[in-house]
Design a protein around this nucleic acid. Structure first.
Length: 890
RNA sequence: GGGCGAAUAGCUCAGCUGGUUCAGAGCGCCUGCCUUACAAGCAGGAUGUCGGGGGUUCGAAUCCCUCUUCGCCCACCA
């Protein structure tokens, strides 16, 4: 026998133990049996991450979808993991070292990597632990880490295969360099941001005499200039092409070249060429044989390739110095304000330095084409749809992917260089090499590691055992749904599609659901640095995981952001907590009233009893339940989780709790017959609704569902079954008829409230006209009406009585509630009289104000108009109250 | 510079592909109720020129045009 439930729901005593029970019972892994697999790959959080609202949102959405499909009988696998997050993790550990006044170079590569491992070992599982607190039902037994042996094998395999196909190459190009992280970045990792800059117009003296003006946003780079470019058709400069300028400050003669890439309409139409520090200049320089002089150290200080007096200056110091010297020399024509986009390191925010260096690249064109085709032919779809165009646009203009990073934490590039310059062989290998396959001499491995995303893009199959042909891989690849933030559409999603096609021959998922971002009320992204974050675990502590999930899911429509107020958790999360509590109490009530006879439950509510034993209210709640099954199922299928939550909320609170439970009380208490039917229907629809809500609020639904009598000990709502629509329950007539009853009760209650009838005081109700169907409905639910509206007598007849309230319902039913005997006429008259007097005074004053031409002529028109409207409104109220007084016979 | 969203109650937002539950929900606010499932509740109520302007239509929050304001993505005009 189960003990009675306390009247207030306390998630803190329910959620933790329940989660552990689920986990111990192995509920999170795919079920055995024949269902279709349903696979979701969790976007692996950074191994050092602490759970924030972004994770909360992302994982709640995934969990809801996964729980939905699991209940529908599919063999559901939600696969979790963590990402080694090269730059981010290395930065964290470097900061720890800095606290000891050490750099990674002080401790050395091996020791440093050891330190990162030990750091990751102690803190690495934190976020996965935290995901448990929000109810994430992922299969922990398959948890991976992107630096695991298995995934490392996959990374090498992918690298080697791509190299064999000529899709991986080493090249000397301009890349985005972060002078703080000291590594190359991909184009995606250099985030373009608009900044207010300046456009400097510099005079470059011409060898032939006179000068040429060039415009630049980065005057300091002139120390590395090796030419000036103009457009070939530009009449202004045609004669100068082939001549030289004398580069100031460095005293170098550099050529003037003509190239189509120059836009004659920008600046002066003449561009200084710095091939080592600008991608366009590099390309132009290559075409014209211009030298590339790297004038910066890795830290972006001026290097020894520049004149001595600039050396060691930071690039922005160098800019000031260059500008000052040019001004002194009279070579600065002018400086204008200029807003333009500048790349920033996505990990540390430092302005990236375009830099010429040797890096490894993936040739993306051949990978992008089939990935684009998958979208174009509809195999891959995006929710919201418009995101698909962003995907297509990016793939259409894709550039090669710089995958080498000058870091120590990550997958070391599987390339070995022969020590013997005479051999010079470069070997790409699946296994570590100790000797050169060409000459047998010594080898050294490439110092660099791979971009973190080079391991992430493989996870849809590497996490399942690839390159081995495991049973998991055969069963669970490809997956179906990917749920993630739009920020990593290019970093991760598009690349997974490409990798899936390239290595597995199939796209890794068919639907990409891109949800919004969590923001504060000023629409700023929640972030640690802004201090506007909400800690999901704090919310769980205070309101429970179900409340957190409910708020997240119902606050976020497809394609919109989730706005929360960090300063007011109560207003954000109270609704979810209140709902859980409401459910708890509805459940307590239903369950505690099952002591009487209950008809045996078969399948849905429609199986419970004979149709002719059902009251109008029974048929109504069953029809509403059936509607809700259809609505919620459809909403989940369409990723409209907010609609699913709202539909279920409406059914449980507004229909079941507010109406049906109230309606059946006399039957439950034995005051009228039919208790067994009422119990059966109540339990059946409650059961269905709990199942519909389970993906949103797993804890409270499981707890209540498990207490419904007759459950096997090991039953779990997690395995459903998902409720099916039942044609027998659909009942438009019941919906309409009980709706009329509800409206009638509401009208009587409104009249009571309006006239201040004492709550306990009964009133009479006289229905003076109505359609036949409504007449039957009112007859059928007469007892309900009498009880819920506190009506002593309900009659159908015309009436001569004048004192009271009347209402007309939507179907034309008219209602009169005599009030002479129900209200304290003296008191009500006094109240109304006071109010009329008060308004009268206000109206008199207002009339005087508006009659005063001093006011009406001098005050602004809108002010006068506002005062006029006030008068009008008060006058109307005055009239209404006077009419009421007359009706009451005051 | 190109592309794309959004603007509805004090706050956060629904209102979906074809123009008909149309002005909604939650929170907040006001009034009255501790009615034995629930005061984290119950009953009742107020608040909107659906961003501005124009158009199509019998009819527009919804479709078209335009303006304003926010936001996002992309971009090698230095």
């Amino acid at each position: 026998m189960t003990e009675p439930l306390p009247p207030q729901y306390d998630p803190s005593v329910i959620e933790g133990p329940l989660y552990r029970r689920w986990e111990a019972a192995g509920r999170f892994g795919p079920r055995q049996g024949a269902g279709d697999p349903y696979v979701v790959m969790m976007p692996p959080p950074n191994v050092t991450a602490q759970l924030h609202m972004g994770h909360g949102l992302n994982n709640t959405v995934q969990d809801a979808l996964v729980r939905f499909e699991r209940m529908r009988g599919r063999r559901t696998l939600w696969l979790p993991g963590t990402d080694h997050a090269g730059i981010a993790t290395q930065n964290v550990v470097e900061r720890l070292l800095a606290a000891e006044s050490l750099t990674r170079f002080d401790v050395g590569r091996d020791a440093f990597v050891q330190r990162v491992w030990s750091y990751v070992g102690t803190t690495g599982a934190t976020i996965l632990e935290q995901l448990r607190a929000i109810g994430a039902s992922c299969d922990w037994s398959r948890t991976y880490f992107t630096l695991d042996a298995g995934l490392s094998t996959a990374v090498r395999e992918a690298f080697v295969r791509l190299h064999e196909k000529g899709l991986v190459y080493r090249g000397h190009y301009i890349i985005n360099w972060c002078p703080r992280c000291l590594t190359a970045l991909s184009n995606e990792e250099a985030e373009k941001e608009e900044v207010d800059g300046r456009l400097y117009h510099l005079h470059y003296p011409l060898a032939v005499g006179g000068h040429l003006t060039v415009a630049t946003t980065r005057p300091e780079t002139m120390l590395g200039d090796t030419g000036v470019a103009v457009h070939p058709d530009d009449e202004r400069y045609r004669a100068l092409v082939g001549t030289e300028v004398l580069l100031p400050l460095v005293d170098r003669r550099v050529p003037i070249v003509a190239d189509d890439a120059v836009d004659p309409s920008f600046g002066t139409g003449a561009v200084k060429m710095t091939p080592a520090h600008d991608a366009t200049d590099f390309e132009i320089g290559k075409r014209h044989g211009l030298a590339a002089i790297d004038i910066f150290t890795p830290e972006a200080r001026v290097a020894e390739t520049a004149p001595e007096r600039f050396r060691g200056l930071d690039r922005f110091e160098a800019r000031k110095r260059v500008v000052a010297e040019l001004e002194t020399l009279g070579l600065m024509e002018r400086i204008e304000e200029h807003r333009h986009a500048v790349g920033h390191c996505y990990r540390c925010g430092t302005i990236v330095e375009p830099r010429l260096s040797d890096q490894w690249f993936v040739r993306m064109g051949p990978l992008a084409r089939p990935a684009l085709a998958a979208y174009r032919d509809g195999r891959l779809r995006f929710i919201p749809e418009r995101r698909g165009e962003e995907y297509a646009q990016w793939l259409g203009g894709i550039r090669d992917w710089c995958i080498s990073r000058q870091l120590w934490w990550g997958h070391r590039i599987p390339v070995w260089y022969c020590d013997d310059p005479a051999c010079g062989r470069v070997s790409v290998s699946r296994t570590d090499l100790t000797a050169c396959p060409g000459c047998g001499g010594g080898v050294r491995q490439d110092e660099d590691v791979l971009d973190t995303w080079f391991s992430s893009w493989l996870v849809p199959f590497s996490s399942l055992g690839w390159p081995d042909r495991t049973a998991d891989l055969a069963t669970y690849y490809p997956g179906e749904t990917l749920v993630t933030a739009p920020e990593i559409l290019f970093f991760w999603v598009a690349r997974m599609v490409m990798a899936g096609i390239e290595f597995m021959g199939e796209i890794p998922f068919s639907t990409v659901y891109l949800h919004g971002t969590v923001r504060d009320t000023q629409h700023r992204k929640m972030s640690k640095s802004l201090g506007n974050g909400i800690d999901p675990l704090d919310v769980v502590d205070r309101y429970g995981a179900d409340a957190l999930r409910f708020t997240i899911l119902s606050g976020m429509a497809v394609g919109t952001d989730l706005i929360l107020d960090p300063g007011d958790l109560e207003s954000s999360f109270a609704a979810g907590r209140n709902f859980a509590n409401k459910l708890w109490n509805a459940g307590r009530f239903v369950l505690s009233n099952l002591s009487g006879p209950v008809r045996p439950l078969a399948g849905g509510a429609a199986d419970v009893v004979d149709r002719d034993e059902l009251t109008l209210a029974d048929r109504w709640i069953m029809a509403r339940c059936d509607d809700t099954v259809r609505e919620a199922t459809d909403a989940y299928e369409r990723y409209r989780l907010n609609d699913a939550a709202a539909a279920t909320y409406r059914f449980l609170w507004s229909d079941l709790a507010d109406w049906y439970i109230e309606q059946i009380k006399p039957r439950l208490y034995g005051d009228v017959p039919g208790g067994d039917v009422a119990r059966a229907v109540a339990v059946a629809v409650f059961d269905v609704a709990l199942r519909l809500l389970h993906p949103v609020m797993p804890f409270v639904t499981e707890t209540l569902w498990g207490r419904i009598p007759g459950r096997p000990a090991d039953a779990t709502i997690m395995l459903g079954p998902w409720p099916r629509p039942d044609a027998r329950a659909a009942d438009p007539a019941a919906l309409r008829d009980f709706g009329a009853v509800q409206e009638l009760i509401g009208a009587i209650r409104a009249i009571r409230a309006e006239y201040g009838v004492q709550p306990g005081h009964p009133v009479r109700a006289i229905v003076t006209a109505m359609p036949a169907a409504t007449h039957r409905a009112i007859d059928a639910e007469r007892g309900t009406i009498l009880r819920l509206a506190r009506v002593s007598a309900l009659t159908f007849a015309p009436t001569e009585e004048r004192v009271g309230g009347h209402a007309v319902l939507a179907d034309g039913t008219t209602l009169f509630v005599p009030l002479g005997d129900a209200i304290d006429v003296t008191r009500e008259c006094r109240r109304l009289g006071d109010e009329v007097a008060r308004l009268g005074t206000l109206i008199d004053g207002q009339k005087r104000k508006l009659d005063n031409t001093q006011f009406t002529s001098r005050a602004p028109g809108d002010v006068v108009e506002r005062e006029r409207l006030k008068l009008q409104s008060w006058t109307e109220q005055h009239g209404t109250l006077a009419q009421k007084r007359e009706l009451l016979g005051c």
